[in-house]
């Protein structure tokens, strides 16, 4: 392990969970952080590696699954998650929820072992019935994990602390964008105390400010492509943004499960969120004072692709330059970095 906790976590994302004793895995970035933090166990998103072959998982998963699911199922089949008490999958994401059913079935058939799969049955339709369903899902999962209301309140407090820290970090970006991507990613896998993350010592000048939008990249490779051109990613409009945890939960005194459920139901994270994506993207670009927007979507990410024409039009109307990259490879081995560099270079001429 290195002295840098972020680098240390990313070098072996499961190391702390393995050493922690009881630990819970999860899959899906819309599972409430408050609920996870309330569990009293170490919680760890199942990690991925975009560059590793997945021959076993490829036998079971169809081509349209999100690529991260292949890494997860490959590792699951290889017993890498056997030490986890259980793994929570989100129903709010198509790949995550389908993976839940596949894992259950492969376990039933005896083809894989591993921890017990659970599902967080997140409903997102802006309607009272869906809100009630989501709140019931929070209560069900809390009961399954032995989490009482006092623990839920503690979880909300811890998640709110993280929200405040991430908001401060995001508002005071001085280091290259790849630094913030790594912090956000590392925070999925292990506790990441604020004090352990060294603030940048000095501002790094950049030729321009980029908003990176669209699919979740596997790591900081797109950020580094931007930096190689002398620019910097100053914000992400995607599921792994530093702001993905949303606003703080303030009304959790009487019924913390209801507060968590309401927060998850109304979140703007995830492909099933009901949100005007063109307006949201333009607003985010303005908020971070972006000079350019890169909208990068991988082949398997079908849902956000339906908003590309509206997003392109909205950004154009706002006078924002935009590079639209659709149907791309998740590992970016399709020349994405070169295209980004060339496009940013062209903006300076």
């Amino acid at each position: 392990m290195t002295d840098d906790p972020v680098a240390s976590i990313l070098a072996d994302p499961l190391a702390r969970a393995r050493a922690a004793g009881p630990a819970i895995g999860y899959a899906g970035l819309d599972i409430p952080e408050d609920l996870l933090m309330a569990s009293g166990r170490l919680v760890c998103h199942l990690p991925w590696d975009a560059d590793r072959p997945t021959p076993t998982a490829d036998r079971w998963l169809e081509s349209s699954f999100a690529p991260w699911t292949r890494c997860v199922l490959e590792d699951w089949a290889n017993g890498r998650f056997d030490f986890l008490e259980c793994v929570i999958f989100s129903r709010g994401d198509d790949s995550a929820q389908r993976l839940y059913y596949y894992v259950c079935e492969l376990q039933r058939q005896g083809q894989i072992g591993g921890p017990e799969p659970l599902v967080f049955d997140l409903a997102r339709i802006p309607r009272a019935t869906s809100l009630a369903h989501t709140i019931a899902a929070v209560r069900r999962l809390a009961a399954r994990l032995g989490i009482d209301d006092a623990a839920l309140r503690r979880g909300i407090g811890l998640a709110n602390q993280r929200r405040r820290w991430f908001a401060t970090l995001d508002a005071s970006r001085q280091a290259p964008g790849s630094h913030y991507e790594r912090v956000a990613r590392a925070s999925l896998f292990a506790p990441l105390p604020e004090a352990a993350v060294a603030p940048p010592t000095q501002a790094t000048p950049a030729r321009g400010r980029v908003l990176l939008a669209g699919s979740m990249p596997p790591d900081d490779r797109l950020h580094r492509a931007v930096e190689a051109a002398g620019w910097s990613v100053m914000g992400e409009a995607g599921d792994l943004s530093l702001l993905r945890l949303g606003p703080e939960i303030a009304d959790a005194v009487d019924d913390p499960a209801a507060a968590i459920g309401r927060h998850a139901w109304s979140s703007t994270v995830g492909s099933r969120a009901f949100v005007d994506r063109a307006t949201a993207l333009t607003a985010e670009a303005r908020r971070i004072r972006a000079d350019a927007v890169i909208l990068w979507l991988i082949e398997e990410d079908e849902a956000p692709a339906w908003h590309v024409p509206a997003q392109r039009a909205a950004l154009g109307a706002a006078g924002l330059s935009c590079l639209v990259m659709t149907r791309r490879r998740w590992d970016a081995a399709d020349g994405a970095a070169d295209e980004i560099g060339a496009w940013l270079g062209s903006l300076e001429r």
Binding site: W60, S64, Y102, L106
Partner: peptide, 18 residues
């Protein structure tokens, strides 16, 4: 049938095949 651009219709086909 495995439609290349239809996640919903693709789903479950490999496990069913096996």
């Amino acid at each position: 049938l495995v439609p290349p651009d239809n996640r919903l219709s693709q789903s479950g086909t490999k496990l069913t095949r096996l």
